[in-house]
Simulated scan of single mutants.
Amino acid sequence: MQTITIELDIQAPAHTVWQCLTLPEHITGWNFAHESWHCPSAESDLRPGGRFSYRMEARDGSFGFDYSGVFDDIQAEHSLHYHLDDGRTVAVELLPQGGNATLLRENFQADAQHDADTQRNGWLAIAQNLARYAERQYAAGNRA
């Protein structure tokens, strides 16, 4: 299985990014690749062995799916490792960049159904939504 890596600079401290990345009330605010989609619900038992499920749906109701799996390793404000229900693994790292900047690095195993560029672009679009959301939260004084 091919592993794909994306990286993105976020102008918010790791603490804020972590809260936005892991708390259901924040996940629903950014977890979609395009404005025609949304994440109407998110559940998360943030502990090793805990399950998560994020509902992703087209806003017009034409399609939806659950992005779900189990957390494997959690280092608060630093890294999050999990596996999806289909067995693929994901590793997320938050790397402080000085000041209030954080580098988000995600490594994920590609699925066999879509080409690598499509998957990279989709995951990058979702990460960009996370970045904008976390930056807005930080700028608004919501240190999450």
Rank of each mutant, 00 (worst) to 15 (best):
T28A: 10
E35T: 12
E43F: 06
S53H: 00
S68Y: 05
W123L: 07
I74P: 01
T3P: 01
D72S: 10
A91K: 08
Q137P: 00
E93H: 12
A127E: 03
L8R: 13
D72A: 07
A131M: 10
S44D: 08
L130N: 03
A144G: 15
H83N: 09
R59M: 03
N142A: 15
L23V: 11
G98K: 03
P48W: 00
G122Y: 08
S41V: 00
A125K: 08
G29A: 05
A125Y: 14
I6V: 09
S44H: 10
L46K: 02
T102M: 05
S36I: 09
I6F: 05
T89H: 15
G69A: 05
D45N: 03
A125L: 09
D73K: 14
D85I: 04
H26F: 04
T118C: 10
D115E: 10
G141C: 07
L46E: 06
S36R: 09
E135G: 14
P24Y: 00
P40V: 04
D72L: 13
C20N: 06
L124C: 09
S41F: 00
I10S: 01
G99M: 06
E7P: 02
N142P: 03
W18H: 03
I74W: 07
F65S: 11
A134T: 09
A91Q: 08
E93I: 04
E35N: 09
P13D: 14
A91G: 01
H15R: 15
F32A: 00
P48G: 00
A134K: 05
G61E: 06
L124M: 15
G141V: 10
D117R: 14
F71N: 11
F108Y: 13
E35K: 06
G99T: 06
L21P: 00
A127H: 08
D117A: 14
A131T: 11
A131L: 09
P13Y: 11
E93Y: 11
E7G: 08
V70A: 08
R136G: 13
A131V: 07
E106S: 13
E77V: 13
Q113G: 13
G49Q: 08
I4N: 06
D45T: 07
V70M: 11
F52T: 05
T16C: 14
L94E: 07
L23H: 13
H26I: 06
L124S: 15
